[in-house]
């Protein structure tokens, strides 16, 4: 909890077509920490993530403050915001089958923003990209560079998407339901990877998920959202074990077999925190 705060969201309100979807969200992301953002669908989790990058849907209005260092992302001119996107704040989307362009090679999607943001030449971008593919544990990184997304499995595609997000060494990574579209067997591998990268690179990660199992596996802090407001926030153990807000309690009670939460017992799903140098991507094939 002593690590430096990188991104501070305060009083974020977003309205779309006159309807308020975020009603004053406060969140703080710190270096090397995974901040989980939970809540049912429609609670505004994804909107919070999109607002940070200025990717809100057409016609949305955002007020409040999203501070990255001493800059407010909400008032940043478009050109400078574009430099932040991908360069300082990157995003991983829910479904890697649709978030990668089907007609462009993985290599191209990995290097184009690298060349744009960092101004590196083709050969250097390629070398970096291959290194990144190795870092996210894609077998045969060199060959994978020239392949198309449809030639990878779902889990591998999400690893590619993570590599793309990390290409310009951002400080903040927003992962919007990064494992929801994946098979359960593949989820653990991707989560372990995220956790490992967060520790290794000192990334501040905002992990948006509705899955409390995912949350308990890798988050340091947990915030729970409901109807556009953060109703509870705190260290993972505290929020998941001794929820203060009745809504959090009802969320935990709604888990199929409330195995993560028999009061008093620590959550023990595939806990990757203890395994901070993960090695084998489980259950995945190239």
């Amino acid at each position: 909890m002593t690590s430096r705060s990188v991104l501070d969201i305060s009083g974020l309100k977003v309205s779309i077509g006159g309807r308020e979807v975020l009603r004053g969200v406060d969140l703080s992301l710190a270096e090397g920490r995974v901040h989980g953002l939970a809540g049912e669908s429609g609670s505004g989790k994804t909107m919070t993530g999109l607002a940070v990058l200025g990717l809100l849907p057409h016609g949305a209005r955002a007020t409040g403050r999203i501070a990255l260092g001493d800059r407010d992302l909400l008032t940043l001119p478009p050109r400078e915001l574009n430099r932040v996107r991908g360069g300082e704040v990157a995003m991983v989307f829910q479904d890697p089958a649709t978030s990668l362009h089907p007609m462009l090679t993985v290599g191209r999607q990995l290097t184009e923003h690298m060349r744009h943001h960092l101004g590196v030449d083709k050969a250097e971008a390629r070398a970096r990209a291959v290194e990144l593919l190795g870092k996210v544990r894609i077998p045969g990184a060199d060959e994978a560079f020239g392949r198309f997304p449809h030639q990878f499995s779902g889990g591998m595609r999400q690893r590619v998407a993570i590599a793309i997000a990390l290409a310009c060494s951002p400080k903040v990574l927003i992962a919007d339901e990064p494992t929801t579209a994946l098979d359960v067997t593949v989820q653990a591998g991707v989560l372990r990877l995220l956790r490992g990268l967060c520790d290794e690179l000192g990334l501040a990660v905002l992990l948006v998920t509705h899955d409390l199992g995912v949350m308990s596996a890798i988050a340091d802090e947990v915030s729970v959202m409901r109807e556009g407001l953060v109703v509870e926030t705190g260290p993972r153990g505290q929020v998941l074990r001794e929820p203060a807000h009745p809504y959090t309690r009802s969320l935990l009670d709604a888990l199929p077999d409330s195995s993560p939460e028999p009061p008093g017992s620590a959550p023990e799903p595939p806990d990757a925190r203890t395994d901070s140098s993960p090695d084998s991507p489980t259950g995945e094939t190239a």
Partner: peptide
């Protein structure tokens, strides 16, 4: 949207 998020 992902391409926008990359700042292209």
């Amino acid at each position: 949207r992902a391409a926008r998020a990359k700042g292209l």
